[in-house]
Each structure stands twice: as C-alpha cells, then as structure tokens.
C-alpha cells in the first residue's frame, strides 16, 4: 500500500491506497471528485486531464503514488461558488460542450494551453494543442471558439474569437 500526502484543490489530503491505484481513480473513488472522467484505456482521450503542480497531465496515466507530494487541481477546483473560470464561462457562452463527458478534461487542457501561450494563440495553434483531447459531439468548432474567446478575455487580446 502507498501512503499519499497531497493537496487536492487547495485541501491537504492524506490517504493510504493500493500502489496500483491510478490518480484518476483515486480522485474519483477516494476523493469523490467525479468530474475527472475516464474515456479510454490507452491514454489518448484526455477526459481525465487534471493539473499536477500546475501542469495539465492525464490522471489515467499516472499512479496516485506518483502524485504524492504534489498540488493537484481538478475541474472542481478551477472555480468556486457562483464564480466561473473564464474558460468555463467561454465553453458555456460558445456552446463548446454537448454531452459534457470530455468537457472537464477539455477545459483543464484549455486552461493550460492559454497559460502556456501567454495570449499568443490562433485557431491553428489551438487545434494542434488539443491533440490530446478527443470530443465526439462538437466537431471541435465551438471548443476552438471558446478557447480563443477565453484567451482574448484573459489576456485582453484585441482580436476576438471568430
């Protein structure tokens, strides 16, 4: 068994889990943070993306034990109360989600993309950067639009989406 000490969404947690427990399952089953989803078993769909020490990683491709000592942020920790993160808001305003299953990973990935590019984003870059996230509902059109809109809002970029 592995002893974990980590900070999840700003809260310190300490747990003992089976060594083979994936971070995704730890979050879903031990922490009841079911917003992190598992959509494949080959580490490609990205429904499980969370931030570990500020970086977007696939929680289905990391043991919970590997994340011990880390700061983990899940979709549930991205905003609180009535407030929404600009990316969450943009997904709503631009209809960037349908069934919602890939959405949480998509939003966590998008937050990371925007942070990494420091406001310098265009459609082609967003599409290339979403390589690790699969959506079956939206055809990505409105996801791309939402990411660009959130980027414009967060970085005050003059060029609006679309």
């Amino acid at each position: 068994m592995a002893k974990l000490e980590m900070t999840v969404n700003g809260r310190k947690v300490s747990r003992v889990v089976d060594d083979r427990t994936l971070l995704a399952h730890f979050l879903r089953e031990d922490m009841q943070l079911t917003g992190t989803h598992v959509g494949c078993d080959t580490s490609q769909c990205g429904a499980c993306v969370v931030h570990v020490d500020g970086k977007a990683v696939k929680s289905c491709t990391m043991l919970a034990a590997q994340a011990s000592g880390a700061q983990v942020t899940t979709i549930e920790g991205l905003s609180s109360g009535a407030d929404l993160h600009p990316v969450q808001r943009a997904f709503n305003e631009h209809h960037g989600l349908q069934c919602g299953f890939c959405t949480t990973g998509m939003i966590m990935a998008s937050v990371d993309i925007i942070a990494r590019h420091g406001g310098d984003l265009d459609e082609a870059t967003v599409r290339a950067e979403l390589e690790g996230n699969i959506c079956r509902c939206t055809g990505y059109h409105n996801i791309v639009k939402a990411v660009l809109a959130a980027n414009a809002e967060m970085h005050g970029a003059s060029q609006a989406a679309e």
């Binding site: 580490s43 990205g46 993306v49 970086k55 977007a56 990683v57 696939k58 491709t61 990391m62 990935a109 990371d112 993309i113 990494r116 950067e129 390589e131 690790g132 996230n133």
Partner: peptide, 9 residues
Amino acid sequence: IGDPHVRYM
C-alpha cells in the same frame, strides 16, 4: 512528441 499532457510527463 505525443500531446501536451504526455510532454509534461
């Protein structure tokens, strides 16, 4: 290589 998430790890 891979995708952004893979590249972090």
